[in-house]
Design a binder for these strands. Structure first.
Length: 735
RNA sequence: GCCGAAGUGGCGGAACGGUAGACGCAGGGGACUCAAAAUCCCCCGAGGCAGCCCCUCGUGAGAGUUCGAUUCUCUCCUUCGGCACCA
């Protein structure tokens, strides 16, 4: 929100305008006619504005866009090379970009312009029995002028909000436009419909419908009695009934009922029909992306003003660098209607930087995803008043380890990758991608509570103000607001958010137990990539553990300085404890460094402490091993509980600086075991266990396993068909 | 609806194809104490058995691969995240 940051965003945007990477076009928004503003999808509840209650309508308004589609191919190609990212995120980004290979086909309309559609299944062209266009499509608009029923339907389509999820879930409706188009495959005339599920923003705003081989087209055809014609089928000749259900396979199929293109598999039919259409001038092969350009205009007051001036003569003029930043006025009046800078004509009025004539400022602000798309680069040189980025950005970037919630898997992470490439192409950074390694945290989720007010609007109530009654299984059965003792409605478990008021402030736990306990508890609850329903039941255990650790170390220190460790002088019990220590260091190093499972690292420290405190060995070498253990534990817990570890280190190594220490090293020699325990199974079921010398041969191990009394019981009278020995783990007899 | 995850004791979770339930919470029993708190010790998936070091069942449901599946494959169910203006 600070001008010294957003001025560079404004400057960069003007660079993108110059390059043609920022452009203006009409786009659909949710319009609240009472508040005179655009609503977010989240703010449209059952077709009405969440505050005004007014019926919301889809409206087309001019908005600024960034051409992310120009980078679709590169963004997609680089997904394959982001080895440090989780596969789930890479898959989501791939699917979001949604590259497809298909054909754009023109269906001639007698007496009119051809109707252009995009399809990935030209092999099913002969099965196209109707067309469907979006409500905003010129054909629909034209037909609506002549026919009031169509006009009503087109109006009705504007009632849904702009969210894709909403469109996919709603009932699929349509109306014939009374127009026919000619299928360029077989020359047949097919009706053109307007349908509420076809979107002007996707592809060409029109589709060819092949009900026999597309699920949605099939449902629509059944509903309106449209023809369903089979044009592909299983290549083994199996009969299918496309009237009953669509058949959509691309594999093991052959075309039928397709004239001279019959009898071909998917690939061959695709190529033959595409080539035929191209030769006829009625189509062309095209790579299409699901990805759409990034709309960055927001009709909101609070944000970075879009640095554009509109002049009648010169059109949209970028604000020149010497007039930046365009600062958002902060002394404004809120009326609850419109954005204050839209309502204030004095702020808007200016002169054209080009011709000097009277002009007006753009009053929209940027999508805040803009700010979150490059902050990581500006962090490296935030004090530079003269440049957006300097050489320090290249020194630090790309970010070695980026951490964020899984909810950002697509939008934020794709926008940031795109923005980074824009900065690269502007010569400001020399890396191709912003984030080398990515850790996506799961979300902390929490029950929501609400009451409905007189008008039916939900008032969200904080979990901190609610008392819960639980049943015998610990499930909530009733919730009451503490202040009035009256019940509240239990909503669902959702990600913590301001809008649902279900965030929980850990400060109360910090106040009661301290920050170290709070951190230990949070890190112990689950691995970071997992979602977690927040409960503070276990915090007591974390606190107990730290108190036990504190006492153990203080007791050790109070007994006086430990002797120097002499590995050759250790007895068996001391060796075993030291072995446990170095196994634990190895495990925790792996948990931190590779697995990022801090919960299991903490559990391993707990196990080690349990064994160490049980040892109760006051001999000089016993105390030397204890010293080694407490030092290692302090070092390994230090990232999670820094305060207590700092104090413990001072006690263990007075005058030494904990932060200057290295991570504890694993002594592999200490981990070598003389004896190992093996599990013995018969037919994969556990039947006993044996302890053998670490150097035992396979024959020795099998003999020992077969000799185990319980194992022998299960082998008695059986024929052993197979003997499996997994070194260090188990023996399995298959009988 | 589409894309991505997850589902294991009363609860949070562990098991990285090889002993299901590590570690912790809650609960039960005991020690210490005049008492309480704190602390320490023991028990703690379900069932069988007088009892066990024994047996059976058990990781959302169903099928499959494997000597062996919580883990891999397929189908289904439920929950969570995202679906372009919540950010």
């Amino acid at each position: 929100c600070r001008p010294d940051y957003y001025r560079w965003e404004q400057w960069f945007f003007t660079r993108l305008m110059d390059k043609g990477l920022a452009y203006k076009k009409m786009a659909v928004v949710n319009w609240d006619p009472v508040e005179q503003t655009v609503l977010a999808n989240e703010q449209v509840i059952e077709g009405r504005g969440w505050r005004s209650g007014a019926l919301v309508e889809r409206r087309e308004i001019p908005q600024w866009f960034l051409k992310i589609t120009d980078y679709a191919e590169e963004l997609l190609a680089w997904v394959d090379r982001l080895d440090g990212w989780p596969d789930s995120v890479r898959t989501m980004q791939r699917n979001w970009i949604g590259r497809s290979e298909g054909v754009e086909i023109d269906f001639e309309i007698p007496g009119g312009e051809p109707l252009r559609v995009y399809t990935t299944r030209p092999d099913t062209l002969f099965g196209a029995t109707y067309m469907a266009v979006a409500a905003e499509h010129p054909l629909a608009k034209h037909a609506a002028q002549a026919d009031p029923a169509i006009a009503r339907f087109v109006e009705e389509c504007k009632r849904t909000n702009t969210a894709e999820a909403e469109l996919e879930r709603m009932e699929k409706l349509g109306m014939p436009l009374g127009i026919e188009a000619i299928n360029p495959g077989n020359g047949e005339r097919v009706p053109v419909w307007v349908a509420n599920f076809v979107l002007m923003g996707y592809g060409t705003g029109a589709i060819m419908s092949v009900p026999a081989h597309d699920e949605r087209d099939h449902a629509f055809a059944l509903k309106y009695g449209l023809e369903i014609r089979q044009v592909i089928g299983p290549d083994d000749g199996t009969q299918i009934d496309v009237q009953a259900a669509s058949w959509t396979s691309k594999d093991a199929m052959l075309t039928v009922n397709s004239g001279r293109f019959s009898g071909l598999d998917h690939r061959a039919a695709f190529d033959a029909i595409a080539t035929h259409l191209e030769q006829q001038g009625k189509g062309e092969r095209r790579v299409n992306y699901r990805l759409r350009d990034w709309g960055v205009s927001r009709q909101r007051y609070w944000g970075c003003p879009i640095p554009v001036i509109y002049c009648e003569k010169c059109d949209a003029v970028p604000v020149p660098e010497d007039q930046l930043p365009v600062v958002l006025p902060e002394e404004v009046a809120f009326t609850g209607v419109q954005s204050p800078i839209k309502a204030d004509p004095s702020w808007r009025k200016t002169t054209c930087p080009n011709c000097g004539g009277a002009a007006e400022r753009e009053t929209d602000t940027f999508d805040t995803f803009m700010e979150s798309s490059w902050y990581f680069a500006r962090f490296a040189c935030a004090d530079n008043p003269g440049e957006m980025l300097d050489a320090r950005a290249n020194y630090w970037l790309p970010v070695d380890q980026y951490i964020g919630g899984i909810e950002h898997a697509i939008l934020h992470l794709l926008y940031a990758r795109f923005f980074h490439k824009l900065m690269r192409d502007e010569g400001m950074v020399n890396s191709d991608e912003p984030f080398t390694n990515l850790l996506t945290q799961g979300m902390v989720v929490k029950e929501t509570y609400f009451r409905e007010d007189a008008s039916g609007k939900k008032q969200w109530i904080s979990p901190a103000d609610v008392d819960l009654e639980l049943d015998a299984k610990g499930q909530p059965v009733r919730a009451v607001l503490r202040s009035d003792g009256q019940p509240v409605v239990i909503g669902g478990v959702e990600k913590m958010s301001k809008s649902k008021n279900n965030g929980v402030d850990p400060q109360s736990l910090v106040d009661s137990y301290g920050a170290d306990t709070m951190r230990l508890f949070a890190m112990f609850a689950a691995p970071p990539e997992q979602s977690l329903e927040w409960r503070d039941d276990g915090v007591e255990g974390a606190h107990r553990f730290l108190k036990r650790l504190w006492r153990a170390v203080q007791q050790h220190v109070a007994d006086g300085p430990a002797s120097k460790l002499e590995i050759g002088a250790l007895n068996d019990a001391q060796k075993a404890l030291r072995c446990k220590l170095h196994d634990t260091i190895a495990k925790i190093s792996d948990d931190y460094g590779r697995r990022r499972t801090f919960n299991t690292a903490i559990a391993a420290v707990m196990e080690l402490m349990n064994e160490a405190t049980r040892a109760d060995d006051a001999s000089p070498q016993g105390r030397a091993v204890q010293q080694e253990i407490w030092e290692a534990v302090t070092l390994m817990l230090q990232p999670i509980t820094p305060h207590i570890c700092h104090a413990l280190w001072q006690a263990l190594r007075s005058g030494d600086d904990l932060l200057a220490q290295r991570w504890p090293a694993v002594d592999e020699a200490a981990r070598v075991k003389d004896q190992i325990k093996l599990v013995v199974q018969v037919n994969g079921k556990l039947r006993g266990s044996i302890t053998v010398a670490a150097a035992a041969t396979q024959d020795d191990i099998l003999a020992a396993a077969a000799a185990d009394a319980n194992v022998a019981r299960f082998l008695d009278g059986m024929t052993v068909r197979k003997r499996i020995v997994v070194p260090g783990k188990l023996v399995n007899f298959v009988v």
